[in-house]
Design a protein around this nucleic acid. Structure first.
Lengths: 210, 210, 210, 210
DNA sequence: CATGAATGAGTCTTCATTCAT
DNA sequence: GATGAATGAAGACTCATTCAT
């Protein structure tokens, strides 16, 4: 655990059932307020109110507002990373095309499951300390991708880490556009296939001629 | 054009020479404060102070803090779009590989020229109204890319608009990682070539077999 | 009732005992500051300071400065209206002269009880939204007067509403002069009797010859 | 001239034609802004702009904002007083009923000629220093009324000054209600006659039995 | 432990007034 | 003389955080 992590986690472990419920409610409330009001107006009081508790209680679980926001972001990204990791594990030993397809769909599915939540958290990711959390999530996913790529049946990669990094980041951009509702007509439906094309093409282009 | 646009532009046109200086200083100061202090601490007072003027003067030219921020963002993105447009114009009629190379380098060069500025403005883009400005910039670039792709000597695209959108967004992701300084060792140097590989591969994969 | 009314009332109902004290202190402080400093210098900070609290607390109970001012005005006018209503009820069935006397004294008594407060609130009545509150108070008093007049033992009125309106407004003018301390020497003492003469004369002149 | 008066008058006399025009434009603009924006938003810049000049020029003629507002108020009230004085002069030696009628109509006519202006200036009259100006206007009118009353053919008054003061103030109230548009239906049309009834009744009641 | 009232530093924004051009 | 850019004090309002109940 880095020192950063210590401020991210709830102040005390939710050993009691009540605590777990409260923490869950606070997380959900944070996202709702974030969606409805935006980051600046996502205040501790408002979150507590929406969660059905008091500010005092909020501070029982989080040392400050930033910690709450970071925790929510982290949980969100962990969910995405979990999905990608699982997909990568399941694709070990397959061909590159299959890998691309599964990874893309895992990522896309997780991200679009709660599109509003994903969208709302972009601003949190830009806050002080947000980048590190995003980076941690990416590290997990890149590691999973790299490990998967190394096991590809039909390709060999000199630097699977690098290829994974680029591939992941490349997919991220188009997804963001769609999430923000700024995509040109038609993109929304074609996003999945198009991303598969994108990733497959890149992976193949990056593989060693063998 | 849009109602948003009207609030982006300075409130009054500088009639006297002093004004132009003040406006310029405010732009520069905004970026500096953004870089050094972050979006939240980028207050009107601080910007005015760094610019060597008073808050009053700031409000003489911008109706509110958001308008200032948006104006700075818009100017930045216009610069990027200019560079990409020029590159696209220059690449008309070339082959797809050349196109990818020129477009990537134009974008990358413009973005990395003031890396700190680019980095700082990501948070502004997440603010209320920021997305529209980003979208406007993207529209310009996508149009330029689409037009360029349509003129490719060695490929034909069914939907150059869509391909341009995806290609641009795909390039954006890796650049962002590098800008934020979160790239794994070695990526920084290989970014350019890698992006060319990425874009070329995608363009070729998207082109009609002809 | 009206949408205005909703912003007049304290934001939250005092759950704890402290709250009631704070709200009361704010009311009193507002009037004091209004009297001592005038409307323009009656700032939220000054009111809070005089009340022995903080601006934050003020805003806990009133959504904005105007709401505070209006609430104070409303409370003041409600007190006046209460007095007039009571007098009117008590005078039902009497003769017109008696009615005039009782109504005038009720109004005058209530208004002069806190002359400074009355004086200070004239400016508030001119603020945005003040007129409506004054109007509401007047409506109450006119209704009471009209009802009283309709029960007069020695006169009959075609339009008691109209007569009440004029009578009330006519009395208001001279009172205002005295409250503002701008009356010529001697008026202060003779105000009561003179207003009775005024109102009695008008009522009799407006009554149907019967 | 009292010291107060010196700050009320334009800083320099409009000896030149241009000055007179500017001062006139400033007065008119002040009233317009007052009507459209209210007292608080009636700023020197806005007034100058509406008048077609610059703030700098405004300060050429008025030492400060308050002086401008007071000058406008004074001019307005002088107009009213002129009208009442003329009517009083014209009514010398008539009967009390005629006097009431002429005075009321003179006052009413002057006040309603520019109803918006009258309405807008109520707030100015409540500002620091406004009361004195209002009082000066009243003094003029009361003097005229008193002199008129003293010449009545059919009545004698012990204290014409007092009677004039009350009569004037009594008329003022109902007029204010109508000006503010808060009068109950029907009052607007009947205002004149009703005020004549009011004033006549009061004058007769105040006259010595002779 | 929970609650929510109190705090007050810190933001944005406005505007009267000045003065260099 | 006219202009309008610059100034900065001052005001309204918000919100993270604390702590008495």
């Amino acid at each position: 655990m880095t020192p950063v992590a210590s401020t991210l986690k709830p102040r005390k472990l939710p050993v009691q059932a009540r605590s777990a419920v409260t923490v869950g409610a606070l997380h959900a409330a944070t996202i709702q307020v974030l969606v409805r009001e935006g980051l600046k107006r996502c205040t501790t009081t408002r979150v507590a109110e929406r969660a059905g508790t008091s500010v005092g209680s909020l501070y029982q679980y989080y040392p400050n507002r930033d910690a709450l926001l970071r925790a929510v972001l982290e949980q969100h990204l962990d969910g995405i990373a979990d999905a990608v990791e699982a997909a990568c594990r399941a694709s070990r030993g397959r061909g590159v095309a299959e890998m691309a397809e599964m990874a893309v769909h895992a990522y896309l599915g997780a991200k679009l499951r709660d599109a509003e939540e994903s969208r709302a958290l972009y601003s949190v990711a830009e806050e002080r300390g947000g980048a590190e959390i995003v980076a941690r999530g990416r590290v997990r996913m890149v590691a999973a991708l790299a490990e998967m790529l190394s096991s590809a049946a039909d390709a060999r990669f000199d630097d699977p880490e690098l290829v994974g990094t680029i591939a992941l980041a490349a997919v991220l951009g188009p997804v963001q556009i769609v999430l923000k509702g700024l995509a040109p007509a038609g993109l929304n439906e074609k996003l999945g296939p198009e991303l598969v094309v994108l990733m497959t093409a890149y992976l193949k282009a990056s593989a060693n001629a063998s």
